[in-house]
């Protein structure tokens, strides 16, 4: 092999950089998050599978309806009426941001911009 003085450091640099996900965790995966579910209510405005993947779309939709159309009432698929409000609907049941929202958001590295306008609930953790 020619120029091994440049080739070998180059290969080491390549392998080192590209295996970053493998060595940066030191072989330990953080445990999967367990968001605390409300004890009082059993059902959300939509079913759990939908809420898991689509809640941000729903919230964004609610935001547009409330802020742009001044419409506060949302009718669920079961015909029940809900007030479209983060603080007065969602957080009535999911009272703790740190124990519910942040659990998955931190794990998945998501930083939603809800709290740029809404006040974060004060929690003593």
């Amino acid at each position: 092999m020619y120029d091994s003085g440049k080739i070998i450091p180059g290969i080491i640099l390549f392998v080192g950089l590209f295996t970053f996900p493998l060595w940066s965790n030191l072989g330990k995966a953080a445990p999967a998050p367990k968001p605390e579910l409300p004890k009082t209510e059993k059902v959300c405005v939509m079913d759990a599978a939908f809420m898991k993947t689509e809640h941000m779309v729903l919230l964004n939709d609610w935001r547009d309806k409330v802020v742009r159309e001044a419409n506060r009432v949302w009718v669920g698929p079961d015909g029940k009426e809900y007030q479209m409000s983060l603080q007065n609907s969602c957080m009535q049941c999911h009272a703790s941001k740190t124990k519910f929202c942040d659990q998955c958001h931190n794990y998945a590295g998501v930083k939603p911009y809800c709290w740029e306008c809404h006040l974060e609930p004060k929690e003593n953790m």
């Binding site: 996900p21 493998l22 965790n25 072989g27 330990k28 995966a29 953080a30 999967a32 998050p33 898991k52 993947t53 689509e54 998955c104 794990y107 998945a108 998501v110």
Partner: peptide, 19 residues
Amino acid sequence: YKVDIVSVKELTMGLATFH
């Protein structure tokens, strides 16, 4: 067509940590 991102991360973290 969203997927459950928390489960996805469990899978990818499992791959990255050899578990």
